[in-house]
Amino acid sequence: MLPAIFYEIIKNFLYYNNLTLMIIDEVFKLIFGQDFIQMTDNFVEISDLYFTRNDHWIFRDISLCIPRGKIVAIMGPSGSGKTTLLRLISAQLYPRRGQVLVNGTDIHSLNQTDLYKIRNSMGMLFQSGALFTNIDVFENVAFPLRERTKLPEDIIRSVVLMQLEAVGLRGARDLMPSELSGGMARRVALARALVLNPQLMMYDEPFTGQDPITMGVLVKLIRSLNDNLGLTSIIVSHDVAETMSIADYVYVIADTRIIGEGTPEQVLNDKSPMVAQFIHGLADGPVAFHYPANKYQEDLQL
């Protein structure tokens, strides 16, 4: 406790750039043999990120922060790179330029062992669910426990059933993934992502394909995980109403950059034409609904 306070004081006193911060961290690590770096308030910090795909810019100079313990929503039109952003944060993809700090470490500079250590504290709900198709629902949720822990079988069983109960699928435990509906599969995937109690949860479109009742339950679940377990969450979605009701902070990305950010109220009342168009779902406006293309008339050869 005392070293932690000491660390905060020194840091605030000496802090003027990232390098000194790093040196302070290292010195403290040497003296106390313990990482204080997680005391910083942003779980994820992205700075000056550039990313391309097939000579096609996805991000140009994006910077954003995900504060610890908060729910941050990333919104934007389809194809604007929201999923790509999550993949960059979890180091499934590597940026052209720029840095992603997760819990204070540059995640793209790690070797496999250290990367897996950090990934132990991350959970990700894939847009497609990505369940293992050769094992049933129960085994899918039990998979991370069996692989990453040495828990005895009866504890695994209770943990898995608890997780499945939370997403309302305890009765479906013996079904195979191919026997689930799309919405059910995503809820199983959610249970699986949560089963190791990650510190950072990334939800890629958690509400898509859910009925209004389930949607309400999921919103409550995500909120209560954050409030009770101190999770940090990133929600990717284009469900404006649901996302606004749950998020603490919202980033809107479109056209390779961040076009708006703020608390839900700020974003809802944003006067900039691009944000307003996206939030209110207007067809006409500066945000392109189309993937970049040449003139429509030319393509049709009129």
């Binding site: 979890s90 499934q92 496999q112 897996y116 250590k117 990934r119 132990n120 991350m122 959970g123 990700m124 894939f126 497609s128 990505a130 369940l131 293992f132 198709t133 998979f143 991370p144 692989e147 990453r148 995937a189 190791l196």
Partner: peptide, 14 residues
């Protein structure tokens, strides 16, 4: 294709 290998990597399982 179905991202099962990627999701495994995200669970820190190689």
């Amino acid at each position: 294709v179905t991202e099962q290998l990627t999701s495994m990597e995200m669970m820190a399982v190689d």
